[in-house]
Amino acid sequence: MTMEMPTEETSLVLNNQTTENCEQVNNTVENLIFGTYYILVFLLAVSGNGLALWIFSRQRGTSSPSNVFLLHLAVADLSYVIILPLRATYHLTGGHWPFGEIPCRLAGFLFYVNMYASLYFLACMAGDRYLAVVHAVRSLKIRHSRYAHITSFCLWALVTVSMAPLLVTQQTVEMEGTTVCLQLYREKASRRALISLAVAFTPPFLVTLACYLFIVRSLRKGSRLEPTLRLRALRTISLVMLIYIVCFLPYHASRAIYILGYSRQDLSCGVQRGLALANRLTSSLTCMNGALDPLVYLFGAEKFRGTVQRLLCKKPGSGSSATSGELKGTHESSVSAKSEF
């Protein structure tokens, strides 16, 4: 798998002085909105994913594969949101990067590692739930937490190695007395980066979409799941697809347009600024998955849901008999409900 390699693109950032002059418009209101937004996302994501990591790490006995993938997803989210205060500071200081070279490299590295790790962990979770619901009995031999951990560590290694060049290449430049971190919206992409974008985003998106469509079809064809469990399953599926559509799809579509159009000499300053703003907006949306993922844990992980209910002084079983995962019917359906919904 080939990931997008921003380090190859950043060398092009100074090649077009007209483009840079068009982009350098100091918008105080825009910077204030972005800075405030990153602070709010940071607070929500740290609290939600921190709680999830604490709950998942304290689980005793054998955990389900989906819970393993959710654990790694929480780690991925936390690894990125810890640098959001740096991005907020960048905006609140008017587009100046005061932290130096190494934090700039880490900011870009963690941005891409989190985004692509999250994409693939969500896809793994979708694949595991597809096996649990559609092929419950036949998949029992391969649906073990050990295999889920092995898969997760392999994905971590793949994404980390793919993004490692960001840690060893120059990422800051001086422009008109201001230090610019190239990984914050200013990286320029070569045309071949379009292939990297497609390879990095398309496979997990299609896998997730296909798995959940098969699950929905199975539920509609007369699944033995209780109505409450079926509703919870559909809510989880809808939430995951919402995360893809809101957080990841706009960024990759915008990047493709940005790559194709931003470096053209015949574009007006207004169009260039519009492309740059779209790049900043969609880039900021990617970090929202860190704030939305705890809702996936809430719907998709019974122990997480039960712990949250206890923390809110509610009885874990109140209002729903579905937390027990009981089903009407075969052992196959029982396995699916207890471990997944």
Rank of each mutant, 00 (worst) to 15 (best):
Q309W: 10
L122I: 15
S238Q: 09
S47D: 07
G61H: 08
W54S: 05
I102Q: 07
S320D: 10
F111M: 12
R191I: 13
L194N: 02
V29N: 07
T36Q: 11
R143K: 10
I237M: 11
T160H: 03
L78V: 09
T2R: 13
E30T: 04
T179V: 14
P98L: 05
V271L: 07
L12S: 01
Y147I: 11
S320M: 01
T169H: 12
T179M: 11
N114R: 09
N27Y: 09
M1F: 13
Y212N: 05
E302M: 10
A157W: 08
T89C: 08
T169A: 07
L140W: 09
A278L: 12
I33K: 04
T323A: 13
A45F: 05
S63T: 14
L12G: 01
E20K: 05
C124T: 07
G48S: 08
C211M: 15
A74Y: 05
L14P: 01
M3L: 15
K328G: 06
I259F: 07
H91L: 01
V173P: 02
M3F: 15
S333G: 11
F34R: 05
S57Q: 11
A189R: 08
T10A: 07
R220Y: 06
V81I: 14
S139L: 08
K221A: 14
E30Y: 01
R264D: 11
V271A: 03
L197G: 01
A210M: 13
A253M: 15
T202H: 05
L53S: 03
R192P: 00
V68N: 00
E340Y: 08
E101Y: 09
Y80H: 08
Y258I: 13
L110I: 12
Q309N: 08
G317P: 01
